[in-house]
Design a protein around this nucleic acid. Structure first.
Lengths: 232, 232
DNA sequence: TACGGCCATTGATAATTATCAATAGATAAC
DNA sequence: GTTATCTATTGATAATTATCAATGGCCGTA
């Protein structure tokens, strides 16, 4: 499940593309010794809530879910989904000594793990890097919070529509896609119950807003689903 | 409503206490020319969602609410309350060119406003400052997101209890306090309706969990309200 | 192959929350 | 000081969501 980084410079990693540009050759070399690329199969855990926070990590490829468990009696709460564009790893606070969230691969994923100390060191010594890092951090936080706030003011139908649009627009860039998560996970993501998620999906299918074949969804009526997303 | 900073070094401002320590005398002097202290009366707007984001700001004294309006048909959504300890200003993303949220004083407040460019400059040139800044930013984001996620998994009774505990424990450090916001604002904060907030408050009063005299609340049964906050 | 476990689905019913309506009180504007 | 506006409150009812129950399908494993 784990393998070391094939090259000192992971050119395809979001971290590289967005932040490594601002490093000198020396800094890159030094950093390369403190990061590694690991592969995770679908369903495996990348980091676990409560464990020591000593690595930042970034999605090079794949898709993950971010979740937390606040109480044994409750369902786990899925906070969001992250893809390579999201510069994940920034969601777990830099200032905390343990991970606030669990992160699990929901598709086969390659994750770039970087020693937190190495990043902190760069933040202190490379101003341009620090500035870009903060800008990205702020964008990521803002994105997650925005989604939670959006979901908050919708009811069931709107929340389901929101999630479907999210996958279609932000993750798969297509009206037709295979859901990477179960109905139950959709429920945990939007804070509702599985049965009701299923019901709404069926309803939308009957209304011909979407088509469903197992976990493959196609959005048939974009205006209507957009309306639900805004007003549902 | 506005006045310039009485001293080049606002020693009591959270920004000062937490971040200015890491600046040299020169940097402090330079920064002092690019920040100002302003006073806001209860109800007045500090920054407005959608306006140009060119200043970070920090609460020196007082209490503010952070809100956003996503849709004319909807109630404004209150995202959170911030006090001097919260290093507000960090909630509005550094990377965005406009404010994502409106911030309004809910108690007379003194706000330290700092040119965003000046801060970005410091982030680039002072490593220690940059690191501390990120750590604070990450704590603030984490705090806000955590509260939203907590509220998310509670129902009405639990959410009201959560807010009351929040004021008692985090803002006023007392079981007895005067609510700085209206019932309607509590509703906008927890994503419920005024009528239901009022009903729950009345219910808690009848159960002798709290006492109510206008906007003065006293928590009488801490165990029970804590139970609501966790399980309600 | 058979079994257990989990997911997906649907129906019936209960619990929660929103909406509508009405009134009293407080506050600001004139 | 009167009027208009907003908040706070309560009740009645409607809409939304959760819970409980039952079924079939799928997958991994003994």
């Amino acid at each position: 499940m784990s393998q070391s980084c094939p090259s000192p410079h992971c050119h395809h990693c979001g971290f590289s593309k967005n932040l490594l540009t601002y490093l000198s050759a020396d800094e890159k070399l030094s950093l390369s010794l403190q990061k590694s690329m690991r592969s995770f199969s679908k369903g495996s855990t990348i980091v676990k809530q409560g464990e020591a926070n000593n690595q930042l990590f970034f999605i090079r490829m794949g898709l993950v879910k971010i979740l937390r468990q606040t109480n044994e009696n409750r369902r786990p709460q899925i906070i969001g989904i992250a893809s390579p564009r999201d510069m994940l790893g920034l969601i777990n606070p830099v200032a905390s000594d343990e991970y606030s969230y669990t992160v699990e691969a929901i598709e086969p994923s390659e994750i770039c793990m970087v020693e937190l100390e190495a990043v902190k060191n760069l933040l202190q010594t490379n101003g341009e890097f620090a500035l870009r890092f903060i800008e990205m951090y702020s964008k990521v936080s803002e994105g997650i919070l925005g989604m939670r706030l959006d979901l908050n003011q919708l009811q069931l139908r709107g929340r389901v529509a929101y999630v479907l649009c999210y996958f279609a627009q932000t993750i798969y860039y297509s009206n037709k896609f295979t859901l990477p998560i179960s109905r139950r996970e959709i429920a945990d993501l939007i804070g509702m119950r599985v049965e009701n998620v299923v019901r709404i999906l069926s309803e939308m299918r009957l209304e011909k807003v979407i088509s469903i074949e197992g976990s493959t969804i196609e959005i048939l009526n974009r205006d209507k689903i957009r309306w639900y997303k805004l007003n549902g």
